[in-house]
């Protein structure tokens, strides 16, 4: 069976109306099966999205999408813990846990485990399956060998990120605020200035990482277009697309066609290249080398 497409949560601080309209368009046009919504990176952004959430969920569901509520990645305060507990308590929608606190709160009922939870081996996967997980989105660091072995265990549905910046780290400290000499508590929401992340260049002027508030991501977009067939053969059931500030409907169509075997990888990569405006692609993690690396058709010929 061809893999299903999951649209991961928007990691960035998009203006609420824009955020809403993005999901409306996804609902109306994007051939994705699952859509994760909710604030994952910074609890300070949550109040701005809350008013939009009901209509976004409704629109997505009306379009036949499975809507999943994503939880906060790093829970430090009582308020944050209570916020996550509230999401886990409701039973209308499935929840994607991004921290072991949420895994704990969801124990005994079906749920999804997100890519920010450390699942590296069969032991952890087995525990999570017994705890009620029905689908696990694997950490981006895993090489093909590990992905294959976990898929072979056949315990739960498995998902792999095939497009978009790879989330690499989360911190208590806000680097967007720090870049403007502000503290997190008085951050003025400056992360909103960079809807696709703030470039972090080396001293040689080479773009390296991308900063999104307390989160650090790869500068490159992960692109496993050429590996979709292999992933499906391994038994990966879901392919995850991380929303970037590009035409995500176009991206979703590309991967839909790839998963259906209706498009050649080379063609798809050329199409994605056009959609992504010169941002370099990477697939190194999957190939067991440095994450920034690019193998196969992604290798850039100077």
């Amino acid at each position: 069976m061809a893999a299903r497409l999951t649209l991961g949560p928007v990691f960035y601080n998009w203006a609420p109306e824009r955020w809403r309209d993005f999901y409306f368009r996804i609902a109306d046009e994007a051939p994705v099966d699952v859509v994760c919504v909710g604030e994952v990176v910074c609890s300070k952004r949550q109040p701005f999205l809350d008013p939009m959430l009901p209509e976004v969920i409704e629109r997505l569901q009306a379009a036949g999408k499975e809507v999943v509520l994503a939880t906060l990645a790093l829970i430090m305060t009582r308020r944050e813990e209570e916020g996550v507990r509230e999401v886990c308590r409701q039973t209308d929608l499935p929840v994607e846990a991004n921290d072991f606190a949420a895994v704990s709160m969801l124990a005994g009922r079906p749920h999804v485990v997100g890519p920010l939870v450390n699942v590296y081996n069969e032991g952890t996967l087995g525990y999570l399956a017994r705890n009620g997980a029905t689908r696990v989105s694997l950490p981006g660091e895993l090489p093909a060998r590990s992905v294959g072995r976990l898929a072979a265990a056949g315990l739960v549905d498995l998902e792999v990120q095939v497009f978009g910046r790879m989330p690499l780290a989360i911190s208590a400290r806000c680097y967007h605020a720090r870049s403007r000499n502000l503290h997190k508590d008085s951050c003025q929401y400056v992360c909103a200035d960079d809807p696709d992340g703030m470039d972090l260049d080396t001293l040689d002027g080479e773009p390296f990482l991308s900063v999104n508030g307390t989160q650090t991501l790869s500068y490159t977009y992960v692109n496993l277009a050429a590996e979709v067939a292999e992933l499906q053969e391994m038994g990966i059931t879901h392919l995850r697309l991380a929303p970037q500030d590009v035409d995500m409907v176009g991206v979703a169509r590309c991967f839909r066609e790839l998963a259906d075997g209706a498009r050649e990888a080379g063609q798809a990569i050329a199409r994605l290249d056009a959609l992504c405006d010169g941002i370099p692609f990477s697939n190194g993690y999957f190939h067991g080398i440095e994450g920034v690396g690019a193998k196969g058709p992604l290798e850039v010929v100077e």
Binding site: D201, L203, D204, G205, D277, G278
Partner: peptide, 13 residues
């Protein structure tokens, strides 16, 4: 380095 980056961007665009 800054100039390099600006130039590369243009080239890509």
């Amino acid at each position: 380095a800054g100039l390099d980056k600006a130039q590369r961007r243009q080239r890509r665009a």
